[in-house]
Design a binder for these strands. Structure first.
Lengths: 149, 149
DNA sequence: TTGAATTCTGATTAATTTACTTGGGATTCG
DNA sequence: CGAATCCCAAGTAAATTAATCAGAATTCAA
């Protein structure tokens, strides 16, 4: 039940973009360097993210990528589902497909897979990139914050 | 984020055992037939389940497997973690291992993986084999139940 | 207007994991 | 004894993952 590198790198890269939101396009090279990911691999991920409408690209020199929307309108769920496909522990609980079950007891286990699916999606859909930025700032301003107590 | 067949078959097979709990040993052959799984593959899964103490084996003719404990004391989480390893979306949130993070922002994403891990484990730990039996009986006694209304 | 910096596209590949299969050995009941 | 069963270790084919490779297309800036 691991996420693949697609989902993990994708969230990191999108968080990286979110930290620079409003400061113009960010190059994949710089993301790759900061996050320690191969540029070419990032290109593949960003092709998907762009097609899904989560980022916009600016081509040519001084180009790069920017978030399509503000960080508070993009969730971790949007990113992971774009890169990994539906977050379901079994095929029979992927909503947009109809996978038949011929076993009589299938529905009992199917109910379980459905609960797992729902709880995962609830968590990732409840976290926005803005939430991540806030967490990041809390960590990094902890010392400063102490002065005010 | 799919469960592998190990986890899925394992839950089905253990549920099969639970339905016959108290009726003596059940052979892998019969489980394999009912659940449509290869016997030899089931053998591998039951080797793990036995080592984890979830089932007991009775060798020789008329042998088979029984649950080590009553269905209400075995959770879906016990089964899945035994067969799939820790239910964590990323290595850095596996509790019993120490995986280092060198990126500064790692902790932000790590927090997310931790939330996903916790929500998955909460769900699977809250479902016992007895719960599954109850669900199963509800489904199958629906018609009978109607006569009493 | 040229060259460097970038995104974009499609193919290829190496490593890993998954989902078994194969081939036997050990044990126990009837 | 022999059939039924669990037990064990290795092998394997297919799929997936995680990239890499090669180069075309676009744009900015000097």
């Amino acid at each position: 039940m691991r996420l693949s590198t697609k989902g993990r790198y994708g969230v990191k890269a999108m968080f990286d973009l979110a930290l620079s939101y409003g400061e113009g396009p960010i190059t994949l090279n710089s993301i790759a360097e900061r996050q320690n990911i191969s540029v070419h691999y990032l290109e593949q991920l960003f092709a998907s993210l762009r097609k899904a409408g989560l980022v916009k690209s600016i081509r040519g020199a001084q180009g790069g990528y920017i978030l399509s929307e503000s960080p508070q309108n993009i969730t971790v769920g949007d990113i992971i589902r774009t890169l990994e496909g539906p977050l379901a522990p079994a095929e029979c609980v992927i909503d947009d497909e109809n996978h038949e079950c011929d076993n009589a007891d299938c529905c009992v286990t199917r109910g379980i897979w459905g609960k797992i699916r729902d709880s995962i999606n609830e968590v990732v859909d409840s976290i926005t990139l803005q939430n991540m930025i806030d967490d990041y700032n809390k960590m990094h301003n902890k010392d400063t914050y102490m002065y005010y107590i």
